[in-house]
Simulated scan of single mutants.
Amino acid sequence: MNDANNIKVAPAPWSINGSKAYLFIHGSRPIQESFNENPDPIRSPFSGGMGGMLLVRYTDSPVGPYDELLFIPGYYQFRDANYYRISQIYVSSIDSVVNGRRNWNVPKKLARFCWTDNDTCVKIFLPESDEPFCTIRVRPRLYCIPVSSALIPSSFRTFLQIPLEEQNDKNMYLKITPSCSGWFRPLVELIEFHTNGKEIPSHEKLSMYTYGVGYEAFTLIFPIAEQVLY
């Protein structure tokens, strides 16, 4: 992890290579609202829908390799449309934290990831903590097939991120539509999901479906954000 006073500047767009990504879905969970860094209930209220948890290992990016855990509660209304929003996200690189917040209004926070068992088990810690706030264990199933996100409608992969605390213009929202290509694994089993209920929602209140999907040896494109004024 780099010193906060020596951050690498890495403007969008980003092309990122990854080795593993696991996505698990949950039903609408408004409990996540209480964990949002900067909730926006008047301009962009939570409107329900399916949410998800994404766990990723990036092997190469404009700021180097890093790990990531993020949560998407579901849809948020903005004017007369609904968009997904990344409400919580932890990464293992301070460069990723600063640039992610600056480029896309993604509320990244720093964490430490300890992987075992061929990247199928991870314990995630706050930087100065000896106790993990989240433990995840997965079991990949079936075989991978080459798939591009171009097959997925853009509405299912478009995010509208709200202004963060450090931004001066509180009326400037950022819209992003990432794309991905690589080896898609159609079935991943969630063996363990445990949280302390403090940093992220409790596993008892954020029950995940047992089976999800994965990506391996993939490339993710995170484009320049579109500015949307309230």
Rank of each mutant, 00 (worst) to 15 (best):
F113S: 01
I191T: 11
S19K: 14
V213E: 04
F78H: 06
K20S: 13
F78G: 00
E165C: 10
N103R: 02
G100F: 01
N2G: 13
Y143D: 11
W115V: 05
L151D: 12
S202W: 03
Y83G: 02
L69R: 04
R137D: 07
S155V: 14
P62M: 01
P30E: 13
S148V: 13
G52P: 00
T219E: 08
I224A: 11
L190Y: 02
K108A: 01
N82Y: 11
Q161V: 11
D95M: 08
L187S: 15
E128T: 15
F218M: 09
S149G: 10
E68D: 12
W115P: 04
N36K: 15
V147P: 04
S148W: 10
S93P: 04
E189I: 03
P127E: 09
E166D: 12
C121P: 00
L142R: 15
P39D: 06
G212W: 01
R57G: 03
F133G: 02
C121E: 14
R101T: 01
G197H: 06
E128S: 12
R85G: 07
A10T: 09
N196Y: 01
D95F: 06
F218R: 02
H203C: 11
V98N: 05
G74R: 01
C180S: 10
T116W: 05
C180Y: 03
F193T: 01
L126P: 00
Y83R: 06
V91I: 11
M1E: 15
Q88M: 10
E131F: 12
L220M: 12
R185Q: 12
E199R: 02
G214I: 05
G51R: 00
S202C: 08
D40H: 08
S149P: 07
Y58S: 00
D95H: 09
W14I: 09
P140W: 02
A217K: 15
E37D: 15
R137M: 09
Y211R: 10
S202A: 13
E199M: 06
R57H: 03
L126Q: 08
I136Y: 01
I152C: 13
Y211L: 14
A81H: 12
T210R: 15
V228N: 08
D3Y: 14
F24H: 11
T195K: 00
E131Y: 14
C121S: 15
Y173I: 01
L70D: 08
F24D: 06
G182V: 00
